[in-house]
Structure formats: structure tokens, C-alpha cells
């Protein structure tokens, strides 16, 4: 009898572990779909890049210090989210939450810079309705920014949960998925940096 009870308890634990792994796999596939989403936006941008209708071109509106700063901030945040994961594997809740706070702060800084970049462009008359090129630019970069913003809200929610429950099978999986998401956005930004900004100012 005693054996049966421990057997069941063990089984329940296995179920949880299995379910959490299943969710991580599902999240990977979600990232595949998100990849396609960005690929479509990139394709649109590349097609419409030259459709400036006599309006401003990339070289005129992209400010090198701005987007370089954005890039470094986002890359650093990806690194700190990695440090958060390391802390999680060591079972260090405080370290984990601490590094998540740093990551979120950097993310917030990135969003702030992006908003001010957009605001400057709009002030110079480079609005989304000026030309097809600018429509594609704002939509592509804006979609990335929207992803980062959603990630920030999500991260704040997870920090509260970590404070409440500590590091468990479930919170571990949640941190794993958000760090996947965060690294993914970082990779997308590398492409944005190259295709939009570098090729734009070249």
C-alpha cells in the first residue's frame, strides 16, 4: 500500500514535468510562427524599400548613434536575461529576480529610445502615411517594439509570480519560455539592424 502511494506521488510529479516540457515545445513552435510573421514583414519592407515617393530616404532619417545605442542596450538585455536563467538553475531566486529587473529596465530603455526615434521622424514629416517605404519601416520596426513591450509586461507578471511561489517546476518553465522569447527578439533585432538600418545608411 505504502509503495502504491509513493508510486502515485511520483507519477503526479512526472505528469507535471512532462506537461511543462510540452509547453516549452509548443512555445518553440509559436516562435516558428512568429519567425514567419517577421519574415513576411521583412519581405514587404525589402520590396517597398525604394518606394519613397520623393519623400525622405533611410539615409536622411536614420540616426546612427540612436540605433547603435538601441542595439547595444537590447544585446545587453539578452545577456542579462541569460544571467537570470543561470541564477535560476542555481536556485537563486533573488539573483533571478534581480537580473530580470535589469533585463526589464534595459528593455524599457530600448523602448524609450525607439519611441523618441519615431517621434523625431514624425516631427520631421517622415510619417507612416508619407510613403510606402515609411509605412513598411514603421510597421516592421514597430511590430518588433510591440513584441518587446508585451515581453516587458509579461516579465513583470512573472517577477510577481516568482516572489509568490519561488522557483518551482512551473515558474522554471515560465522563465525558460520568456527568455526564449527575449533571445528571439534579440535575433530579430540583429536582422532589423542589418537590413533596415545598416543597409539604409549605406
Amino acid at each position: 500500500m505504502e509503495h502504491a502511494v509513493t508510486h502515485h506521488a511520483h507519477d503526479h510529479h512526472d505528469h507535471h514535468e512532462e506537461h511543462e516540457q510540452l509547453k516549452v515545445l509548443g512555445f518553440w513552435i509559436f516562435l516558428v510562427t512568429d519567425c514567419i510573421l517577421f519574415a513576411t514583414l521583412f519581405a514587404t519592407y525589402v520590396v517597398l524599400r525604394t518606394h519613397t515617393d520623393g519623400g525622405p530616404i533611410g539615409k536622411e532619417i536614420f540616426e546612427v548613434p540612436g540605433f547603435v545605442a538601441e542595439t547595444f542596450i537590447l544585446l545587453t538585455s539578452s545577456f542579462t536575461s541569460g544571467l537570470a536563467t543561470l541564477a535560476m538553475h542555481k536556485g537563486n531566486v533573488k539573483g533571478l529576480i534581480g537580473w530580470l529587473i535589469v533585463t526589464a529596465a534595459l528593455g524599457l530603455g530600448f523602448i524609450g529610445l525607439e519611441i523618441s526615434e519615431f517621434a523625431n521622424m514624425v516631427q520631421e514629416g517622415a510619417t507612416i502615411s508619407r510613403s510606402a517605404f515609411l509605412s513598411a519601416f514603421f510597421t516592421l520596426v514597430g511590430t518588433h517594439g510591440l513584441h518587446v513591450s508585451v515581453g516587458l509586461l509579461w516579465m513583470i507578471g512573472l517577477m510577481v509570480q516568482l516572489g509568490r511561489y519561488g522557483i518551482t517546476t512551473v515558474t522554471k518553465r515560465k522563465i525558460t519560455t520568456i527568455s526564449l522569447y527575449w533571445h528571439f527578439l534579440d535575433v530579430v533585432w540583429i536582422f532589423l539592424f542589418t537590413v533596415v538600418y545598416l543597409m539604409g545608411v549605406m
Binding site: T52, D53, I128, S129, S131, S135, T139
Partner: peptide, 18 residues
């Protein structure tokens, strides 16, 4: 929708849309 709502020019006949 962005075309219709924000006045963008992805698929319009003018201002570089396709």
C-alpha cells in the same frame, strides 16, 4: 488595416503603394 486606419501606403495606388 494599417493602410485603412493609419493612412499608410502598402497597397494604395499612390505614394509608392503596390
Amino acid at each position: 488595416f494599417i493602410d485603412r486606419y493609419f493612412g499608410a501606403h502598402f497597397f494604395t495606388m499612390t505614394q509608392g503603394g503596390n
